[in-house]
């Protein structure tokens, strides 16, 4: 039982990171019906942005410094990636928005390769060690289940961001406009909603959440490198599909389930199959419930 709860705790922390990335996939898909395959790489850029920001601000060099110093690093990385997301939308996706879906998909793959190779060029191919912006500590919960303060931070920050996102989407004028645009772009523009600007905002928010995930992963798994976004990107995509792509709560649930199943596989089967579980889940979802757990059953729009 202790083993189970230990893996559950690890899985929840790791799944929060998937959930944050999956949100970006699902939001962009909801609004553009586009799988933004560059999204995992935005997460990588987020990790590096945090790495360089921490270096520039000198955060993580002093032991037992206040963990609040990590806040500007997190926010800075989110801002940088929000900007990156806006640029990607503006220069890569907007020009092909009226083209076929296949064109957009190939563009997304192109952006992904571009970011990965630009990352290798700019940051170097060798892994870098993410600074300890929060001094690590281990906390023992009951029954000998141990978690680190990093894992707790991951979960807390993720929950905070997801609550914030939910309130934004449900309550604010812009959030409601996002939902309107995702339902029907033309009908939204007939309300006077500036559709292009709403799409830009969606990319900015999704990318900022990916950056937060990049920062958080740097805390718990401090080795970062330019290709680190590929596998988590795919898994978060699967998480979004599992939750029902286009659904925000679906992405959160899908991410958590993905993280937990991964760690249960590690704990009970073998860490060899850790990555395989994502694809098993993907195949099962596509076979059994292609709309995902919370997905709407929408007919393909012509």
């Amino acid at each position: 039982m202790q083993e189970f709860f230990q893996q559950l705790a690890n899985g929840v922390a790791w799944g929060s990171i998937y959930a944050l990335i999956a949100l970006g996939y699902t939001m962009v898909y909801g609004i553009l019906r586009l799988i933004n395959f560059a999204h995992g790489d935005v997460y990588m850029v987020g990790a590096f942005a945090a790495y360089y920001l921490a270096g520039a601000l000198g955060v993580g060099t002093v032991r037992d410094a206040s963990p609040l110093l990590a806040v500007p690093v997190l926010l800075g990385a989110m801002l940088i990636c929000a900007l990156l997301g806006v640029l990607i939308e503006l220069f890569a996706y907007r020009p092909v928005r009226r083209s076929s879906r296949l064109t957009a998909l190939i563009t997304a793959i192109g952006v992904s390769l571009f970011l990965e190779n630009a990352g290798i060029r700019l940051f170097g191919a060798d892994p870098k060690f993410f600074p300890q912006v929060i001094t690590p500590r281990t906390i023992t919960l009951g029954e000998g289940v141990m978690v680190t303060n990093h894992q707790i931070t991951v979960v807390l920050v993720s929950v905070l961001l997801m609550v914030g996102l939910t309130l934004f989407v449900q309550r604010t004028r812009t959030g409601k406009a996002m939902r309107a645009v995702s339902f029907h772009r033309d009908a939204a523009s007939l309300m006077g909603i500036p559709v292009d600007r709403i799409i830009t905002i969606t990319f900015a928010i999704g990318s900022a959440l990916a950056a937060a995930a990049g920062f958080l992963v740097g805390l718990t798994n401090p080795k970062i490198e330019p290709l680190m976004g590929i596998m988590p990107g795919i898994k978060a995509f699967v998480a979004a599909v599992l939750g029902g792509i286009g659904s925000i709560p679906g992405a959160m649930i899908g991410g958590l389930l993905m993280g937990v199943s991964e760690y249960l596989v590690v704990g009970y089967i073998s860490s060899t199959y850790r990555d395989a579980i994502a694809f098993v889940i993907l195949i099962l979802v596509l076979l059994v419930k292609p709309t995902g757990l919370l997905g709407r059953n929408v007919a393909e729009k012509v």
């Binding site: 004028r173 409601k176 939902r179 995702s182 339902f183 029907h184 009908a187 309300m191």
Partner: peptide
């Protein structure tokens, strides 16, 4: 083309966007 994923009130709010 009412926004089926929004409430009735939210639809009207969008009209007054």
């Amino acid at each position: 083309i009412v926004f089926a994923n929004l409430t009735v009130l939210e639809n009207l709010e969008m009209g007054a966007y």
